[in-house]
Nucleic acid binder design. Structure first.
Lengths: 298, 298
DNA sequence: TACAATTGATACTTTTAAAGTATTAATCGG
DNA sequence: CCGATTAATACTTTAAAAGTATCAATTGTA
């Protein structure tokens, strides 16, 4: 049995006239009769009761017609789903991100992606850099938003966001009255930073600019969550240097001050990259990647 | 697109190897490659990502595979439903019957039919003879259980049940002590019968045997429902002559007595026939007809 | 009642496309 | 680097679908 048989059957069942049906199918009448006969022989039951002058569906033919119509609908749907999937308009994508991406690039990308591809299911995982790399390799996430550098030959990456660093001070700090902060004035302060292990891409530049300003920061506390660092600053436990986008989440008891860019070295030092498996060619991943690169802020 | 393309696609998707898939399909590998290429060209998207050494489904191919599998299941089901319908194992049948069929042939037929064809939906309509004929011609019922004679060239009929007539007497009637009744002894009684118009096939033989016994019955009341006749007899309104199967529904205050068959004329005078449209060739109707004729009681 | 029109089936021919054969090109493992 | 593996390509053969001509049965009308 081939779809041709079912298409022909449907036309004859609609027209109830072999001549007209053949005409609509753009074939001659004898091959149409033949195909219907073949179909009936294969099915093992009659689809039509024919006299020399008229054609009518048998009860079995009626039942079969309903089913066949649904089959064609299902086939159309199958093709449509396949096409949408191939375009990345349908499917699933798993995105990993470090907490600090929440304040800048992630919401922008998510909103645009949802607008463009509303039928793609998005799965979000807030993960530390190292976990993201593991999950990426294992295929548990398809995209990672990570602060470079990361060296992995199986992963592709692109910088998608760069921002300046700011100093976070308790409101009652004596430097909090200034509009910009000279880094060297923080030489004696106690610092609260991310653990180097989890975010070397953020940690190392901070240490570097401090040393360029003539001091090594005294780190008294390390915190995994950026929000926790802010809390500790507000509680007068110390000061911190953070990506500028932290200012999106304002908090009582803390003020953020730009670093005076005498050397210019403090500008755009916090970078965020998008990572993916080089072996992954899935349409949804490619669409998300395209969109992320379109929205680069460097 | 033909089912062949989908069958081949399914096999390649299962094997993920053109050579093995071709072998299982009992064709050579090159035509299989060709058919898959044709399918992809028609669909407008790739189903497989192939290197010279390996084959894998694209995301679109995965989605399409799921749908195609369902399509084949649906096709199998369509064939099965059609076959069952052609055998009369699936479908619907509408049966009309006169009230008095309830006591004899109808329950037998219904139970057997349900046992044999449990997936056929049965619709029952208790109707007078004349309404059944109208409904039959209009196609509102497919089968009628009617007391003949009926003359209609568009309908087929077969006698399926014949039974004797009995006399229904009030319990306190002076003849109620006898085991059989001589008809002539009822000459002076008041009779309660069906209206002739609604059941001439029952009415006329009753009148005939009475006249053969030497009297014309005095009909004081006509009732459409057999149960109502029995009620009136129990209420001492008169006597009646009814088909023997009425004894299935015993009732206080009424006794039934066989007619003494001196002449033999009272035997098997009440007949029930099955009627159908001669133009109707539906499998369910044919199965019911077969079954009714198998269960003939003459 | 007979005859023309209608309509599906049959017999046979042509055309299309599916399947087969031989071979190539690329990849991978040893 | 060589041989085995595997999908693709080029070309031939074969099968089956479509076309043509005609028949046979039915219907309705002259």
């Amino acid at each position: 049995m081939e779809l041709r048989h079912l298409r022909y059957f449907r036309m004859v069942a609609t027209e109830l006239h072999f001549g007209r049906a053949a005409e609509k199918l753009h074939i001659a009448q004898p091959p149409l009769s033949k195909q219907i006969q073949d179909l009936e022989a294969e099915l093992g039951f009659e689809l039509f009761t024919r006299t020399k002058r008229s054609v009518a569906l048998t009860p079995a033919g009626q039942v079969f017609l309903v089913e066949v119509t649904q089959i064609f609908q299902k086939l159309d749907r199958a093709i449509d789903l396949g096409r949408k999937t191939s375009r990345g308009e349908l499917g699933k994508i798993s995105i990993g991100f470090v907490g600090s991406a929440t304040y800048n690039i992630l919401p922008v990308i998510l909103q645009q992606f949802r607008d463009r591809y509303p039928y793609v299911q998005i799965e979000l995982h807030e993960l530390t850099t190292d976990r993201q790399l593991i999950w990426l390799r294992e295929g548990r996430i398809d995209i990672g938003l990570i602060r470079p550098p990361v060296i992995d030959v199986y992963l592709g990456s692109q910088v998608i966001f760069q921002e300046s660093l700011v100093v976070a001070l308790p409101t009652n700090h004596h430097l909090a009255v200034l509009t910009t902060i000279e880094l060297s004035s923080l030489a004696a302060e106690r610092f609260i930073l991310f653990p180097r292990q989890l975010a070397p891409g953020l940690y190392d530049p901070i240490i570097a600019i401090c040393q360029a300003a003539g001091f090594s920061p005294q780190v008294v506390q390390e915190c995994i969550q950026m929000q926790t660092i802010v809390s500790l600053v507000s509680a007068n436990m110390g000061v911190s240097i953070l990506p500028a986008s932290i200012q999106e989440a304002q908090r009582q008891g803390v003020v953020y001050k730009p670093i005076r860019s005498g050397s210019g070295a403090a500008d755009k030092l916090a970078t965020m990259s998008i990572f993916w498996r080089l072996s992954d060619d899935s349409p949804t991943m490619n669409r998300l990647l395209e969109l992320a690169l379109e929205n680069r802020e460097l």
